[in-house]
Computed example of a mutant assay.
Amino acid sequence: MTVMAERPMTGGTESDSFEDLLRTLDELDVPDGYKAEIIRGNIVVSPWSKGYYLDVMELVCEQLRPYLPAEHRISYGPFLYVFPGSERAYGPDIHVAHRRASRISSTHLDGEALSFVAELTSSSTRDDDMTDKVEVYGRAGVPVYLLLDMQEECATVFSMPSAKGYKSSDTKPFGEKLGIPAPFDCVLDTTDFTAP
């Protein structure tokens, strides 16, 4: 498989069922530095983030950790959350879920167990992060979706999930503070989120 940097690669056909795509995804040998997700009926392979994104992910985790709901864990990294009703499977950059959600032997975690998700955009994932994922996370009832637009250097927090996505959003440029709603009820300082 050849993968091009900063450009997603897709595979799958209209006739593939969601379960078939999940099996294919499980068998896929994804090269180091890439992740695979199921978006709009396709397996999408995209490069991992730029180095400084790690600092941003750690800053988000450090700031939110004291405000986590009881028995919830915040993490970043390659875990696949599935949304069977929407036929999607995402590997969010940052995720918060109850600890029992990960006490399974499957590599497919329940997307509806999430209480918070954050995505850091790249040129290859930005459109999906800003459209498809907003709708799917909202329909699944994820209370808070934080979108860090690394190209435009701004943060948007989505809340009040609904059948069409989210009913509420608030956007601030990097460098300002952004309120993170329930169940966290805290303020996120985005001062150090800009590119070096």
Score class of each variant (00 low, 15 high):
M150S: 04
A5K: 11
R99I: 12
A5D: 06
D132C: 14
D132W: 11
M9Y: 02
K172Y: 10
L80Y: 00
G41Y: 03
F116M: 04
S15K: 06
S169R: 11
I180P: 02
D29C: 04
L28G: 10
I39M: 08
L64I: 14
L120M: 15
F83V: 05
K35I: 10
S162W: 01
D170R: 15
L178M: 10
R100I: 03
T107I: 15
S123V: 15
L109W: 11
V3P: 01
A5Q: 13
R88H: 06
G175K: 04
T2Y: 09
G77V: 07
L68A: 05
R65E: 15
Y53G: 08
D185E: 14
S168T: 13
V96W: 00
G179W: 01
E176F: 06
S15W: 10
V60I: 15
F116Q: 03
T24H: 07
M150D: 00
L59C: 05
A182H: 13
T156K: 03
S75H: 15
S159F: 10
I39F: 02
F193S: 11
G138H: 05
F174Q: 02
F116V: 02
L147A: 03
F184C: 06
D132I: 15
P78Y: 07
E37C: 13
V82W: 00
P66C: 06
A101G: 09
I74L: 14
F174K: 02
D185F: 01
L178C: 12
P66V: 06
L54V: 13
P161F: 04
S15C: 00
D192K: 09
I94E: 07
T131E: 08
W48I: 15
S17N: 07
L25R: 08
G138A: 07
L21E: 02
M9G: 08
P196K: 11
M9S: 12
R65C: 12
S123A: 14
P161D: 00
F184Q: 11
